[in-house]
């Protein structure tokens, strides 16, 4: 499957680096920050991320993630953070509104996923968050990024296209999109 993926031949434009502060479409002050250092249970940011996923609307799940139930969520996040990728969080005060992650696939290639809590969707946070994640990865030398998305998930596909992702493979139930950062 992955060997059939076609990356764009052109390198994407330079994305804004985190941190970014802005007001979302509802007038809420949002801060997007890279999440560096250790992420582990007990850590304030980790617990805030767990809280966001525990409240996450199951209807917004994609291909089985995030899992349902706090234990499974903790297990999934532990596995995610063990892999040493890049993570960016959108904060309103001390509440996590969204999380975007690049998980290493091999040395130069990363899988992307982004989750915005239902109370914060449709307010322009996803765009700022994904741009900041791509900027963060770009800054650290990440070269190729891919993702999968269910075909019917139009808002997600539109977001990925807006920031420069191109369709890489479309013969499966879910489609693959890819971008070249460096």
């Amino acid at each position: 499957m992955s060997d059939e993926r076609a990356y764009p031949s052109e390198v994407a434009t330079e994305f804004p680096r985190p941190p970014r502060e802005f007001e979302d479409a509802e007038g809420r002050p949002i801060e997007v920050r890279a999440w560096e250092g250790e992420h582990g249970p007990g850590d304030d940011a980790f617990e805030s991320v767990v809280e966001m996923y525990v409240e996450f609307d199951p209807a917004d799940r994609a291909q089985g993630v995030p899992p349902v139930g706090e234990d499974r969520i903790r297990e999934w996040l532990a596995n995610l953070f063990e892999q040493d990728g890049y993570d960016v969080l959108a904060w309103q005060g001390d509440e996590v509104a969204g999380h975007a992650t690049l998980v290493p696939d091999d040395d130069s290639t990363y899988e992307l996923a982004i989750f915005v809590h239902q109370e914060y969707q449709g307010a322009g946070i996803g765009t700022k968050l994904i741009e900041a994640l791509l900027g963060h990865g770009q800054e650290h030398g990440a070269e190729y990024v891919w993702l999968t998305v269910e075909r019917w998930n139009r808002p997600a596909v539109a977001l990925y296209e807006k920031v420069g992702f191109e369709t890489a493979a479309a013969e499966s139930f879910e489609m693959e999109m890819a971008i070249r950062l460096n």
Partner: peptide, 15 residues
């Protein structure tokens, strides 16, 4: 099978 970030992907045969 699961992708690096844990998403389920059906194989081509299953599809």
């Amino acid at each position: 099978q699961r992708s690096p970030m844990g998403k389920i992907r059906l194989g081509n045969i299953a599809e």
